[in-house]
Design a protein around this nucleic acid. Structure first.
Length: 420
RNA sequence: GGGGAGGUGGCUGAGUGGCCGAAAGCACCCGCCUGCUAAGCGGGUAGGGGGUGUAAAGCUCCCUCGAGGGUUCGAAUCCCUCCCUUCCCGCCA
């Protein structure tokens, strides 16, 4: 969230950011409530201060008249504080619904049409035959099974079978190895159910509850991404400035309701209720967060390059980047069978927006007052669509699928999927 | 699941109704002292919020001793609920 002080001082900037993001900010309500709350708070504190003072007197004098008066003051202070607290929690609720600002380098725009390609790597492969889709290939090779998944769990679920499952496992291993050994990230294995406070920390709540699976009768939610537990790893901590940046990588299944995506990407292994993802997270400082964000994006791109997949890096425009992000890049890998790009990674820097919610701070130097950290995350990468891009890019005219060299050590001797 | 013990500052740990936002020790910071180092001496060091201030500083008030409620003029301290840690028993991967 944004700080109340900032909103007080820059209401127009907050309003403008909200409009350009298509996420209107309740600035006027906040400013009104803020005034009201502060007035109440002040009055309550005045009563309380006097009460505290007189109470000390009473301890000496034991004056019964004073005691009666103090009893009244205690009641008055209590009800005044209750009013102030009610206003404050109303105010806090509103603050959680104010979208983040965006960096000046973010393109202004309303829809994905105004996103900007900032980098491109490789090119669309010329296979020399009409490429098939991954789901066509996957079903005929017997490595993907959607029909059975529907019977057991419904649409947007899948089984991977044999070499398909192996491919998924190998990819996870490969990505984790690259990020931990070569990019300097520390691996985390996390809880996959988290409480509401954690979801608020990463800004999945309160606004996006309809995107999340909730455990019945408990304050637990299935994580939509490892970002949630990993970013919250240091919640309510004050870190040492010289520990930063902290770099984490985590593999986790991710669950999303995909509400609002009815009818979209219903065929294939693209938009699932459950999918695997390797996630990169950094906790850093205001001074370094934009550079660290660029580097994190490069770390994700490195995986695509090693896999030999053609992709584009896109800078998201204001209207397409989301509520909490300060700046965001998507990585879109080319899928020849589908004849389109698939989003395999989304990398974002949040400024101190999440850190403020999750109360993650650091001390720039010994004795200095704490400051909110900056958080960054990105997929490195999301599995299903990476698998799709691999299958469609490395397919052969005979329907078998070759493997990128980088992946071969992770496939237990399998070099060609479909060979018997 | 049943029963016991416990949750206090960066850490250890004292504190059972006002003198306590909190002894002492450790750690850390500043200064002094000493050929150097170590030791020693003196001082400092929790977080959040309100008011004042152009702002920083400063001044001042309020809140916070796991969380929330209650008793009381007054709660770290007493009572209730919840969460967590730990030990014993039970159950189970």
């Amino acid at each position: 969230m944004l700080s109340l002080e900032f909103i007080r001082a820059n209401p127009d900037a907050v309003r403008r950011a909200g409009e350009l993001k298509g996420e209107p900010a309740p600035v006027d309500e906040i400013l009104d409530l803020d005034q009201e709350w502060r007035a109440r708070q002040h009055r309550a504190e005045e009563i309380k201060a006097e009460q505290n003072e007189l109470s000390k007197q009473f301890a000496k004098t034991r004056d019964e008249a004073l005691k009666a008066r103090l009893r009244q003051m205690a009641d008055a202070a209590k009800s005044e504080l209750a009013l102030a607290d009610a206003l404050k929690s109303e105010l806090d609720d509103l603050l959680l619904r104010v979208p983040n600002l965006f960096h000046e380098s973010v393109p202004i725009g309303e829809t994905e049409a105004e996103n900007v390609v900032i980098r491109e790597w490789g090119e669309k492969p010329d296979l020399g035959f009409v490429p098939r889709t991954h789901f066509d290939l996957g079903e005929s090779l017997g490595i993907m099974d959607f029909e059975r998944a529907v019977r057991i769990s419904g649409s947007r679920f899948a089984f991977l079978v044999g070499d398909g499952a192996r491919l998924e496992r190998g990819l996870v291993q490969f990505m984790l190895d690259v990020h931990t050994r070569e990019h300097g990230y520390t691996e985390l294995w996390t809880p996959m159910l988290v409480n509401s406070a954690a979801m608020v920390g990463t800004a999945n709540l309160p606004k996006f509850a309809d995107q999340l699976f909730k455990v019945e009768d408990r304050d637990l939610w299935l994580i939509p991404t490892a970002e949630v537990p990993v970013t919250n790893f240091h919640r309510e901590e004050i870190l040492d400035g010289d520990q930063l940046p902290l770099k984490y990588v985590s593999y986790a299944p991710s669950w999303r309701t995909e509400a609002g995506a009815a009818g979209k990407d219903t065929r294939g292994f693209i938009r699932m209720h459950q999918f695997s993802k390797v996630e990169l997270v950094k906790v850093t400082t205001a001074e370094t967060s934009l550079d660290e964000f660029e580097q994190l994006t490069r770390d994700a791109e490195d995986i695509l390059q090693r896999l030999g997949l053609h992709y584009q890096a896109m800078a998201m425009c204001t209207g397409d980047m989301g509520f909490a992000q300060y700046k965001k890049y998507d990585l879109n890998a080319w899928a020849p069978g589908l004849d389109r790009y698939l989003e395999v990674s989304s990398c974002s820097v949040f400024s101190d927006f999440q850190a403020r919610r999750a109360n993650i701070r650091y001390r720039p130097s010994r004795g200095a007052p704490p400051r909110f950290a900056h958080t960054i995350n990105g997929s490195g990468l999301a599995l299903p669509r990476t698998i799709d891009a691999i299958m469609e890019t490395y397919q052969r005219s005979d329907g078998m699928i070759a493997l990128p060299d980088a992946l071969k050590p992770y496939m237990g001797g399998v070099e060609l999927i479909g060979a018997r």
